[in-house]
Design a protein around this nucleic acid. Structure first.
Lengths: 230, 230
DNA sequence: CAGACCGGTAACATATCGGTAACAAATCTA
DNA sequence: TAGATTTGTTACCGATATGTTACCGGTCTG
């Protein structure tokens, strides 16, 4: 279940937001000031944060910065001001979206979905990088047009999705573990095995450049053919 | 160098955009209609796309969808319409940002930076001095364009970073040791070894001027080719 | 000039990591 | 419920990372 942290000191608006988001199928945590927001963030590890700029106890910008030092959880900044300087300050502090009040709830939800799609990888039928495409629903991977689709297990799917969504970027073992098994984590051994199994299924035959590259002592990268200077 | 594809049929605006973006340090490709946009995208593989909605030969939305089937290159949609339905349609097609005309150039650039930060990778990531560049994430060093990247170990990495960040300045053995092993320190022997090993990996072939120079009884300097006193 | 010291080189030892494999436990499916 | 599939566990092996020690040649100094 996707969890969203809403930080908003206007109680009426906060309620509306919570209600709407819950109806849209998210779990919602509420905070009315900066300090509790930060505490809640650390405790609940939401998948996304909707953050009002003007809140008591540490303003939104500050919260934004602090959160960024911890993780790259997507943040939507909510505010009445929309002067250039503000927008730029917000984006520089690490916000991912900037929405000015008043705003449309439908639009907000669309933006949330879009952000989640990019980071968490919410419902989206197909993912692809180069010749490899992944049908999330059917749980199968295809090599371009080549025969036959390869069936993936649930865990293999999650792993491949995580890699695919961050193609050409190094994923640490830690973050992969969290992405696959959730925050409770798992052994490194388990990841090792999973990588091994996934490779056996989708790695192109011997000669070709390897798809999933090991970065010793760090993690793994899925290379797209494009970025394959070598 | 970060490469941006701008798709805009209003020639005046396109020029302004290209000019501003180039001044901001990006490489810019221009397309004035959908079909060439797609072609350029496939050919140049830009890091980000700024996409006008209303363009000849396949509208922006369509281009957006097509691009998405190939990769998850970030897309900023540019348009005059800002009805809910439009925003939602754009985001659903896979756009990452939606900016309505008229817009502020500074804001656009800030959004571009923010998107790039999210996708390409954090500001850190690459360090370089002269021909040598260091990919911190992947723990590898590259010599200009020459093959193949050299993998560095964790300690070698730290050492090289310390030297690189203080290029052309002498680092004492003490400070190097602290930078590499932390305040608890380590033996001089260990540093000696590490320097030796690092040199073996990244020092240019015999003839050339040495990269890491020894300052007897003091420490080491990493020389950038520019300042090559001798 | 001799000995101390320094830095480069080398060989070695040990620990850890990552790939592989076989097997056991758990889960799914017919 | 039986059999197949998926997932976790353990073991082994070779490669790599890192620390340790030793040797050698140069330079400085008394």
């Amino acid at each position: 279940m996707t969890r969203i942290l809403v930080v908003e000191d206007d109680l009426a608006l906060a309620d509306v937001l919570a209600f709407t988001l819950r109806r849209a199928g998210f779990e919602v945590d509420l905070a009315h000031d900066g300090r509790t927001a930060l505490a809640l963030f650390l405790k609940e590890k939401p998948d996304l944060i909707v953050l009002d700029w003007t809140i008591p106890n540490m303003d939104g910008l500050e919260v934004c910065t602090r959160v960024r030092t911890e993780s790259n959880t997507p943040i939507i900044m909510l505010t009445v001001r929309n002067a250039d300087e503000d927008v730029i300050a917000a984006l520089d502090a690490g916000a991912d979206e900037y929405v000015t009040k008043p705003f449309s709830l439908r639009q907000l939800i669309a933006r949330i979905r879009s952000l989640l799609r990019r980071t968490i990888g919410e419902p989206q039928g197909m993912l692809n990088a180069g010749p490899l495409s992944l049908d999330v629903e059917r749980r199968e991977a295809r090599w371009g047009d080549e025969r036959p689709p390869i069936h993936l297990t649930r865990l293999e799917m999650r792993l491949l999705m995580a890699l695919l969504q961050n193609a050409d970027r190094v994923m640490t073992t830690e973050s992969l573990i969290t992405r696959v098994w959730g925050p409770e984590g798992a052994t490194h051994e388990m990841l090792k095995q999973l990588i091994y199994r996934l490779r056996n299924k989708i790695e192109p035959e011997p000669g070709a450049p390897t798809l999933i590259e090991t970065i010793p002592h760090v993690g793994y990268v899925l290379n797209t053919p494009a970025n394959h200077r070598k």
